[in-house]
């Protein structure tokens, strides 16, 4: 068994799944964490993003074995001002890209609690949104930054 922590709780998966992308292991019945989504599978859209020991990672390509003994955080585990601001301001439309945006924004705010608008936008350039919620995502995060 490969053990890791998922949103603060102990979690594990079978050794045979070591080479599988982390996203598929997280979403498998054994782990059952459906928050990160598959969007492209090639690190182009960011819907799969998670934090591994606080660093943003693309779960669609990261081999699951890489998180052994480490802490994986998904949007489900990030009950933070960033997530609350995005949800409370309806900063999405279909919502499919939102878990990845929460993770990418959370990583930014941990490193830089008062980012500028340009810093927020640049940090989110790894995340695609097709509904055009960009302006309200940026507005919500600027408020979190106190700007």
């Amino acid at each position: 068994m490969i053990r890791f922590r998922l949103n603060g709780e102990a979690a594990q998966f079978d050794d045979s799944e070591r080479d599988m992308p982390l996203l598929y292991v997280l979403r498998s019945p054994a782990v059952g964490e459906m928050t990160p989504k598959l969007g492209c599978g090639i690190e182009q859209c960011g819907t799969c993003r998670v934090l591994v020991d606080g660093e943003p990672a693309y779960a669609c390509t990261l081999p699951a074995g890489a998180v052994e003994g480490r802490h994986v955080e998904t949007a489900a585990g990030l009950d933070t001002p960033v997530r609350r601001a995005l949800i409370e301001s309806n900063a999405t439309q279909c919502g499919y890209c939102l878990p990845g945006i929460i993770v990418a924004a959370e990583a930014l705010f941990r490193a830089n609690p008062r980012p500028s608008g340009a810093e927020i936008a640049t940090a989110l350039d790894s995340q695609l949104c097709r509904c055009g919620s960009h302006p309200r995502v940026l507005r919500a995060l600027l408020e979190v930054a106190g700007r």
Binding site: K37, T92, G95
Partner: peptide
């Protein structure tokens, strides 16, 4: 619907 879409299984994919 947004909370679940941000933090849980909410789509046909899930």
């Amino acid at each position: 619907d947004i909370l679940a879409k941000a933090t849980a299984a909410a789509f046909v994919h899930d």
